[in-house]
Structure formats: structure tokens, C-alpha cells
Amino acid sequence: MPASERICFILFVIFCLVFPWITKGSFAQAVMIQFLIFCLYGLGWNLIGGYGGQVALGQAKNVGMSAYTVAVLMVWWDIPFWVSTPLGVIVATIESFILGYFLFRLRGHYFAIATIAVSLVWQQLFINWNLIGGARGVELPLRETPNFLYMQFDSPVYYHYFAFLLVLAAILYMNWFRKSKLGYQLRMINSSEDMAESLGISIHWVKVKAYCITGVFAGLGGAFYTVYYNYIDPFSVMHLELSVMIALMTMIGGAGSMWGPIIGAMILIPLDRYLGAWLGGIGIVGVDFMIYSMMVMIISAYEPKGIWGIIEKARGKR
């Protein structure tokens, strides 16, 4: 990491570590945990969307696959979190692999539209699939005492630190990834597919691999989401809107830079929660989405590298 990013990283770590001790409000803590979950989703999406430049609008189905696996295993067979999470991540990854294998035959617009179509099919399927709760969703059984095996705690502080550990691992992984062979190959594909092909990079295979890693990130996020909220439904973990939100968030923060998704989540999640709570109270819906879409339009038109791009530009000029 360059020195400037190291400062960002240290500040971020300190902020996350002390956060539960400086705030007492449970709403603020819930927003913080949601921010961490979206960091995880966004860091994963950034891999294929930002570094790879592939507009895959289907992060929600990876999240949902894993969340549903964890929830169903826990409700039906009482399988602990630590066993069901790897299974959930594997399901999400396999799903990503199969879909990626077929969808990455398509390029550009065709690919983006196809991922939307797949997301809509999955969303519809899960809403109508009564065996796993359909539109009502799945509720996890509440346990009387805090239980580490099932990740049920009496204080949000534990969830906060667990989510923070996941995000920390994701950041460190991304830091390694962007200097790895796969990272360079992916960026090459983003800048020119033809040139990447002429350099002997197997485009299809690299994209599929990156898409699987995206699935792992989303799978971890989905599994954590399930045990944190104790309840999932297709609208919260399987919906196209979630995929859209993740993509817009990363785009605003800066697609293709490590801190982009984190900056995006830092702006959008508190905005969404506080604005939603305030506007929902006076009965206005959809203003939050209008603000994000305005931001994403401005960012895409004037600074496609997002807020991180603006920061880098400002530093370069100094």
C-alpha cells in the first residue's frame, strides 16, 4: 500500500475499533454494521465491476444464495453458523461459476442485460418458492442464551467486531489481489479485451475466476446478514434493487480503486438510513434513490473514477 492509503487504512481500522465505545445509540450502531456489510458486498463487486469493467448487476443473487443456504440449514437441521457459512459460500461460488461460465460468452451491453434477466428470474423464483418461505421469507429460531455456535449475541458489539474482521480480511485480500497476476490480467481486460487476448490471456477464464471471487465476498456478506438480522426475505437479499445499489455505491465511491466501495458505502448507507428514517416519517418514498441516481449520473458523466478519482486528482495537482 502507498503511504497515503496506509493512512486511510489505519484511520479506518481505528475508527471501526473505537466506534462501539464512542457511540451509545443502537440506531447508529445498526447503521455502522450495515455499512460494514455493504463494504463487503461492494469490495466483492468492485473486483468484477471495477477492476474487470464487467457490468454484472447480480451481486444480490450471490448474497441471497448464501443467505438462504445458511438460513435453511439452520432452520431445518439446526446446523451451526460455522458449518453452514462455508456451505453457503460454496453454493454462491458454484452458482457464480455456472452462470459466469455461460454469461461471459457475452460482452458489454449484452452481458449487462443478461445479468439483469438472470437476477429477475432468481428473484421471481425465490418470491414464489413456498418451500423456503416464498415472499414471507425465513425466520431463524431465537435462542435463550447467547450462543457462539449460532452467532446469537445479546449485544451488537460482537456483530460489529465480527463484521469488521470480515471487512478487514476483504481489504487485505484486495490489497494483495490488485498486485496479483489475476488482478493485472483483469485490468488488462478492462482496458482492452483484444489486446489482452493478443497477450495470451484467456479472457473467458479470467472473468469466470474473478466472478467466483465476487461470489465468495457476497456469500460471506449474505451469511453474516442472516445471523445478524435473524430474518431474510427475497426483497432484502435477493432483489435486483440490492444489486443496483451495490453497483451504484461502488461507482460513486470509485470503481476500480480499492477504497472506492468503502467511500461509496460511507456516503450512501448513512444517507439511506437517516434520510429514509426522516423522509419515511413524513411519508415521502424514493427520494433516497433519486439522490443516489443523481450522484451516479454526475459521477459517470464527469469523473468516471468516482470520488476516489477526484481525491487522487486533487492530490496530483498539489
Binding site: 457490468v55 453497483a247 451504484l248 461507482m251 450522484m295 459517470s300 458523466a301
Partner: peptide, 12 residues
């Protein structure tokens, strides 16, 4: 801009 910006821009 790049393809990503074109797609997400009209998406916005």
C-alpha cells in the same frame, strides 16, 4: 467515459 460509466450512467 469507459463502458462502465456509459452503462451505469443511463442506469442512473
Amino acid at each position: 467515459g469507459p463502458m462502465l460509466a456509459q452503462l451505469l450512467g443511463t442506469f442512473g
